[in-house]
């Protein structure tokens, strides 16, 4: 931290101490957990000069992953490794465990937090598409009270979140998926580790006894300015029996969203068709057990 320019560096020992501190400060607060983003940002530009950096990495209250009825609650201090290796997450939200396993490298994952991945709001954040299909919620400490915000409402645009000054995300809440829900997470990078996502695809899907799709949510990441899911894409399969034609339709519709939403960029000529091909590959394997 010696090279990070900031007004003050503060490391509370307890959440209570942090709450006290927040009540009594009107300064700009930046939180640091794993530091795998903040330290890099600070190295590039002095953007924390007027901020107090509050280190929450050691707060025991923010650690851990637990069950709360039909919900999984992930503490803001949980690292990607914690999430990746959590039995609860692997059982009830496998897509998130897979996504967390694709982050950086083992060393990065041991230190970086899932919550940091959200708040950093990078479109290339590896976990975001999985949190999108899971419809995550965030519990936020604001003015000494806990409020619940929708994950989609918190990320505004690339690298910008909508949290207010001093807001502290304390927990990530996810509705448990039925154990029979099939999950897939696909990541495309330029190399196998330490790769900035060029694209991620997160999929959750459940079929009933007759083979009809009862739950389906698919989206891609690193393609849109913020995490998004699409009802019109998902509705193509919901209530129907999966077929090659329907899968092709999903693939076409989802990949067409890339230029629709992000505009035609230099990367579109690559990303749009690759998205279409990969969605076909993922769904054919998942739903038809076919390699395409």
């Amino acid at each position: 931290m010696n090279n990070v320019k900031c007004k003050k560096y503060f490391r509370p020992e307890t959440l209570l101490e942090l709450k006290d501190f927040l009540k009594n400060t009107s300064e700009n607060v930046s939180y640091i957990a794993g530091g795998t983003d903040l330290i890099l940002h600070a190295r590039e530009k002095d953007i924390y000069e007027n901020n107090i950096i509050v280190d929450i990495f050691n707060l025991k209250e923010l650690k851990g992953i637990k069950e709360e009825g039909d919900k999984i609650v992930i503490g803001a201090g949980a690292t990607h490794t914690d999430v990746e290796q959590s039995d609860i997450v692997n059982k009830y939200a496998k897509v998130l465990a897979l996504a967390c396993r694709s982050v950086g490298s083992v060393l990065i994952r041991n230190h970086s937090t899932l919550c940091g991945n959200i708040c950093n709001a990078s479109p290339a954040g590896d976990s975001l598409s999985s949190l999108a299909v899971l419809g995550a919620k965030l519990r936020v400490l604001r003015d000494d009270k806990i409020i619940e915000l929708d994950f989609f409402d918190v990320i505004d645009k690339p690298e910008v979140n909508k949290l207010q000054n001093k807001d502290l995300v304390v927990e990530i809440v996810i509705n448990k998926l039925d154990e029979n829900v099939k999950c897939d997470f696909f990541k495309l990078g330029r190399r196998k580790a330490l790769a900035i996502s060029r694209m991620t695809i997160s999929t959750i899907c459940k079929t009933d006894e007759s083979g009809n799709v009862v739950l389906f949510n698919i989206t891609c990441g690193a393609t849109f300015p913020k995490p998004m899911t699409f009802e019109d894409v998902n509705n193509i399969l919901i209530g129907k029996k999966p077929s090659k034609e329907l899968i092709d339709e999903v693939a076409k519709k989802l990949s067409d969203k890339i230029p629709e939403i992000a505009g035609i960029r230099k990367s579109t000529a690559y990303k749009q068709p690759v998205c279409e091909k990969m969605v076909k590959r993922v769904l054919s394997k998942m739903l038809l057990n076919e390699e395409v």
Binding site: S105, R190, R191, K192, A193, L194, A195, I196
Partner: peptide
């Protein structure tokens, strides 16, 4: 080396 892509051990 974030964008200048060297092979990692995994590669």
């Amino acid at each position: 080396f974030d964008n200048y892509i060297l092979p990692t051990f995994s590669d």
